[in-house]
């Protein structure tokens, strides 16, 4: 995504013609680049990469934290996982959540950004409002919404009742619980998407719109043929971040529903947490983690791939 120019017509900052003394005369003996990457690589190696490898090793064992001996079971955990309905359910919930939140967040963010594009005192105020939930933690958001939707003390049901509407069982209903969590997920992050897209929109040179208008393009066509193409890198960025964080869904369901009712909002990480830290089956939990890790890798690779293909034209 980074290799695409930000906006059409914007002068590219790469590669001026002429000699590039910074690259050619590299001394062969020592490259200081390795010093630059050392701290991050060391930290990532010790605190992320090595633990991942270790959890992969754990997934091949019947592993309980604290036990001195762990029985090697090969791929048994993965085989069991394959036959585990609750895992498949969690995967389905996670995928549905991620798809819905990503789509909602990006589309709504795009719509709001288009509306608030012009900068005035009131759009600035509205932007601030939309961005505010982003700084609250997911746990706080979850707790607040759980109470807002509470049938006894919640504001939402109280207002609906006053308006003469019978409030539905938001989080207690098996069919509404997941959509409710999805809505809160979108509520939490839409401001971030909006701001990112807004920033990108500000970069589009106005003369492109003027040229399009001269060609007789209506508002929709201008949006379709000028705005959207220019926003592609920003859209890819927000989609990728939303997908990756969506697939790791945990805090929100943990604080709102604990995965209920009857597992209808149980995400993969929630299930992993249940197996690993409530039942202490770390080997099995690690297998869950690894499957999730591979899923996330595959989905992001696919997204990056698709976007690169389109870069070609």
């Amino acid at each position: 995504m980074s290799s695409t120019p930000l906006a059409p017509g914007r002068p590219r900052t790469r590669r001026p013609h002429g000699p590039r003394p910074s690259h050619r005369p590299r001394r062969p003996r020592f490259n200081s680049a390795y010093l630059f990457i050392l701290p991050s690589v060391l930290l990532i190696g010790v605190f992320i990469a090595e633990p991942i490898v270790q959890s992969g090793w754990m997934s091949l064992h019947d592993w309980t934290v604290g036990e001195s001996h762990h029985k090697f079971v090969g791929l048994d955990n993965y085989t069991a996982l394959y036959h585990d309905h609750r895992f498949w359910n969690a995967l389905r919930v996670t995928v549905v959540y991620t798809a819905a939140v990503t789509a909602g967040q990006v589309l709504l963010g795009l719509a709001i950004a288009s509306r608030l594009r012009r900068t005035t005192w009131y759009t600035a105020l509205l932007r601030t409002a939309y961005f505010f939930p982003f700084i609250a933690s997911l746990v706080v958001s979850g707790i607040v919404w759980k109470f807002l939707l509470d049938p006894q003390v919640g504001l939402v049901d109280a207002w609906l009742s006053k308006a003469g509407v019978t409030p539905p069982d938001w989080l207690q209903s098996t069919s509404l619980a997941l959509p409710t969590v999805i809505a809160v997920g979108i509520w939490k992050n839409v401001g971030f998407t909006m701001i990112v897209l807004l920033a990108s929109m500000q970069q589009i040179p106005p003369d492109l719109y003027e040229a399009a208008a001269l060609d007789g393009a209506g508002p929709w066509q201008r949006f379709r043929h000028v705005t959207l193409p220019a926003l592609r890198p920003a859209l890819l960025f927000t989609t990728l971040i939303a997908t990756v964080t969506g697939l790791q869904l945990f805090d929100l369901v943990f604080s709102m529903t604990s995965g209920g009712p009857i597992f209808h909002t149980e995400s993969v990480v929630m299930y992993l947490y249940q197996k690993g830290f409530v039942e202490f089956r770390m080997g099995y939990a690690s297998a869950v983690a690894w499957v999730l890790f591979v899923v996330i890798l595959a989905v992001s690779a696919l997204q990056l791939r698709l976007s690169r293909y389109r870069d070609a034209d």
């Binding site: 990532i44 605190f47 992320i48 990469a49 090595e50 633990p51 991942i52 270790q54 959890s55 754990m58 934290v65 990756v244 697939l247 790791q248 945990f250 990480v269 992993l272 947490y273 690993g276 830290f277 770390m282 939990a285 690690s286 983690a289 999730l292 890790f293 996330i296 890798l297 992001s300």
Partner: peptide, 14 residues
């Protein structure tokens, strides 16, 4: 790739 690892996965090893 490390962006894609849930914290719970690495918690015990870390």
């Amino acid at each position: 790739a490390t962006l894609m690892v849930p914290f719970q996965v690495t918690l015990v090893p870390v």
